[in-house]
C-alpha cells in the first residue's frame, strides 16, 4: 500500500477533540467519512479539507491523536484519503485509525524532524518505508503487524468484517 503525495507536517501533541475533530461532530454521532472529511482540523485550519488531496500524508510528532479516541477523527482522515506517519501515536488513536482504515506508521521516532511541510513523499506503509522525494532521503521504520495491515487494506473494520463474515470466521464460546 503506497501513498504518493504531499507532506502535511504537524508538531507534538495533536489531540483528537482539541485539534483533529471538534467534539461537537462526535456528539452528533456522525459516522460518514464523506461528511466528516470536511471538518478535519477545522478549528486549526478551516481550509485544510479543501487543500488536502487523497494520497497526501500527515506527518506528526509525538502522541498524534492523544485524548479521548473518538472514531470521528480518523473517519474524517479516511474520508480525505490521507495516510498518517507519526513519531508516536497513543493506543487509542492507533486503534481507531485501524478501525477507520487509515494507513499508518505509528512509531517512527524523529520522522517529523526529517520532513518539511509540502515535501513530496512516497510512503510504503506495509514495508515501513518513507521516501522524501523532495529531499532525496529514505527512512525505514517498523510497520504495523501484517494482521493489522489486512484490516487497513480492507478499508477498516467494517469492510474487513464483511469479508470475515463471508468466509464464515467466528469466535463463539461453547
Amino acid at each position: 500500500m503506497i501513498y504518493r503525495g504531499r507532506c502535511w507536517k504537524f508538531g507534538d501533541n495533536v489531540g483528537i477533540d482539541t485539534h483533529i475533530m471538534p467534539l461537537n461532530y462526535t456528539l452528533q454521532r456522525l459516522s460518514d467519512p464523506q461528511v466528516l472529511k470536511d471538518h478535519v482540523f477545522e478549528e486549526v485550519d478551516p481550509e485544510f479539507h479543501r487543500n488536502a488531496r487523497p494520497g497526501d500524508v500527515i506527518v506528526a510528532g509525538r502522541r498524534f491523536g492523544h485524548g479521548n479516541p473518538h472514531l470521528q477523527a480518523f473517519l474524517g482522515i479516511r474520508g480525505l484519503g490521507m495516510g498518517v506517519v507519526a513519531d508516536s501515536m497513543p493506543r487509542g488513536a492507533f486503534r481507531i485509525a485501524v478501525y477507520s482504515g487509515v494507513p499508518l506508521l505509528a512509531f517512527c521516532k524523529n520522522v517529523s524532524e526529517c520532513v518539511d511541510h509540502g515535501d513530496e513523499l512516497q510512503v510504503d506503509f506495509e514495508r515501513g518505508i518513507v521516501k522524501n522525494t523532495t529531499k532525496d532521503t529514505t527512512m525505514k521504520y517498523e510497520a504495523p503487524p501484517a494482521e493489522i495491515f489486512e484490516i487497513i487494506r480492507a478499508g477498516g473494520t467494517i469492510p474487513y468484517l464483511r469479508r470475515t463474515i463471508a468466509k464464515g470466521t467466528q469466535f463463539v464460546k461453547c
Binding site: 487509542g92 486503534r95 494482521e147 493489522i148 473494520t157 468484517l161 470475515t164 469466535f171 464460546k173
Partner: peptide, 19 residues
C-alpha cells in the same frame, strides 16, 4: 480493555484483535 468501535466486531464475529 477499551476497544471502541471494535465492539462491532465482537458482536458480529465474537471477538476483535488485541495485541
Amino acid at each position: 480493555i477499551p476497544i471502541l468501535g471494535e465492539v462491532t466486531s465482537v458482536v458480529a464475529i465474537g471477538a476483535t484483535w488485541i495485541l
